[in-house]
């Protein structure tokens, strides 16, 4: 049953050192405020899962939260490399980062298998590609009907899924709109889930019966954090700050500039700080 609580309490109660966690969002609705809170609380030895670890995981890796990353595309979209992730992989700073690398199709299927309570996912994938040679978690399964050999990967079953959504109602039912990514699958695959939302409303009022709704009984904790997806975006609320994604390349390139940014913007910050982004964008439109 979803419990409405402050973000700090939601993270403290649900994300523990050593947990396997998925902070999901496919470019859209990336839970930045929740990740910053996780960094502030000093979580360590996390296994991070995400299809597209962009600058949110760059920040968590650079801050020393992670020992392993399971992913399928790790970059700053349209800009270039994740310098903190690269520093961890290439130089072991601030600590070594173990990688488990898949393709998008495999990760998406693996989340779906997790949500469906299956042990593994299968797909027609990785044909002629080198990843199966370096990732022992990519195996094969033979179709019992046609004998076709298909790729198989283990289901994703995180300890915690963390997502950002447009709104929740007072009972804790959650609505996600726009590019919905794999957030529904991530929440249903996880043991626990934390959702930050732009607004809390009396009635959810989904615009269509086919809207993506996560009922309150699938969610552990909800925190009201307006602007909590910034600098990514919340469809219907504020736009992606592409200028910040471009600026991140310079901030993250050197350890010193990254640490200074982390101190000023995360370690000295509060979840309420994100509200100013929601307001600023709303006023500009």
């Amino acid at each position: 049953m979803a419990e409405l609580m402050p973000l700090a309490a939601a993270i403290a109660a649900n994300v523990h050192d050593g947990d396997t966690v998925a902070y999901e969002g496919f470019t859209h609705l990336i839970p930045f405020a929740a990740a910053h809170e996780t960094i502030r609380q000093g979580r360590r030895e996390l296994t991070l899962i995400r299809m597209t670890p962009d600058i949110i995981y760059d920040q968590m890796i650079g801050a020393g939260c992670a020992r392993k990353l399971k992913f399928s595309w790790g970059g700053n979209p349209g800009v270039g490399s994740l310098h903190r992730m690269r520093d961890a992989v290439e130089n072991g700073w601030p600590q070594a980062l173990e990688l488990e690398e898949h393709s998008h199709a495999a990760m998406a299927n693996a989340y779906e298998a997790g949500a469906a309570n299956l042990p593994f996912a299968m797909l027609r994938g990785y044909i002629g590609a080198d990843l199966p040679k370096v990732n022992p978690m990519i195996r094969t399964v033979t179709c019992p009907f046609t004998a076709e050999v298909l790729a198989a990967v283990p289901a994703i079953r995180p300890d915690v899924a963390v997502i950002h959504a447009q709104r929740a109602d007072r009972k804790g039912n959650v609505l996600v709109e726009g590019i919905v990514g794999v957030q529904k699958e991530a929440v249903l695959a996880a043991k626990r889930s934390v959702v930050t939302v732009e607004e809390i409303v009396e009635e959810l009022q989904p615009p269509s019966p086919n809207s993506v709704v996560l009922p309150h009984w699938t969610i552990t904790a909800i925190a009201h954090v307006p602007g909590g997806a910034y600098p990514s975006y919340a469809f219907g609320h504020y736009q992606r700050n592409n200028a910040f994604y471009i600026a991140w390349d310079k901030i993250a390139r050197e350890r010193q500039s990254f640490l200074a940014w982390l101190q000023d913007n995360v370690l000295s910050g509060r979840p309420e700080d994100f509200a100013r982004y929601a307001r600023r964008q709303a006023a500009a439109e």
Partner: peptide, 25 residues
């Protein structure tokens, strides 16, 4: 032109938008 593969512009101007598992499957 979108900077990322999932800019809001893409969703706002799409005929429809599906989940990522549906996209790949």
């Amino acid at each position: 032109l979108p900077l990322s593969i999932g800019d809001g512009e893409l969703c706002e101007t799409a005929l429809f938008t599906v989940s990522v598992p549906e996209m790949f499957r």
